[in-house]
């Protein structure tokens, strides 16, 4: 599904990713854990295609395609989804309009027919209820006036509606109380399937109690320092990231 080879990325003149190697197979859940500032969000943005990152080496293949050559919208229609650590507010564009535009853009790219308004509303309502979200939110501007938890749920709602092949969740757990955390985890678990993969980025082990990962990686100093099974997350919880820190990184 995803194959990252020796990826080097420089941000604002500083090398942040110093040779990442990571391979995710279909149906697998991988977790990346690491101290703050270790480059987790940088990796997620580079995969999603945000501008401002200088890719100085390496390559990324996604579903057999050269991911780094693709425009962000093409990555999305190929099946990549990023749940943002800091979801963006878009005043004036209602959440419903946003979701409808996105879902129809994806369908069009895949050569499918646009959803009828009734079909769309039905789908939206179904997913909304599953995630325990207030329908009022749909009328407001995207993420405008949303609490931290509401923003994260909105990311999961989008993921549920867009049905990606690979979902990257960047600290979707941070700032959530235990109930919200469970709902988000349930949202993810509902989507798990043999053809869908996840890359769960998190600072804490907590979320991984609810979403069982197949593989856990430790990212620090711009590299994957260690790879293991779920037990690695528990070990980190006990021992912290001591020993993994690099410059500018903190627990």
């Amino acid at each position: 599904m995803l194959n990252i080879e020796n990826l080097h990325v420089t941000v604002a003149g500083r090398e942040v990713l110093k040779g990442i190697n990571l391979s995710i197979e279909a149906g697998k859940v991988h977790a990346i854990m690491g101290p703050n500032g270790s480059g987790k969000s940088t990796l997620s943005y580079v995969l999603a295609g945000r501008e401002g990152y200088d890719i100085t080496g390496g390559k990324v293949a996604f579903m057999g395609q050269d991911l780094l050559q693709m425009a962000p919208e093409d990555r999305a229609s190929a099946g990549l989804f990023l749940a943002f650590q800091y979801p963006v507010e878009i005043p004036g564009v209602s959440t419903t309009t946003f979701l409808k535009t996105a879902i129809n853009a994806l369908r069009k790219k895949r050569g499918e027919k646009e959803l009828e308004p009734v079909q769309f509303l039905k789908l939206q309502k179904e997913k909304l209820t599953q995630l325990g979200m207030d329908p009022e939110m749909l009328k407001r501007g995207v993420n405008v006036g949303f609490s931290g938890g509401e923003k994260k749920r909105n990311e999961v709602l989008q993921m549920a509606m867009l049905e990606p092949k690979l979902a990257i969740l960047d600290e979707t757990d941070s700032g959530l109380d235990i109930d919200a955390l469970k709902t988000v985890a349930e949202g993810v678990n509902n989507l798990r399937s043999p053809t869908r993969s996840f890359l769960i980025i998190t600072h804490y082990q907590r979320l991984l109690n609810y979403i069982k990962p197949d593989v856990v990686h430790v990212l620090a100093r711009g590299k994957i320092q260690k790879t293991g099974g779920p037990e690695l997350a528990l070990l980190l919880e006990e021992q912290g990231y001591a020993g993994f820190y690099g410059d500018g990184e903190a627990a």
Binding site: G49, P72, I90, T101, A105
Partner: peptide, 23 residues
Amino acid sequence: AALFYLQSRGISKAEARALLIQS
């Protein structure tokens, strides 16, 4: 940031710009 957010959901850059300008 809003442009990228829209694009990352599959909306083309031109359409994302139009959406932001219209709103």
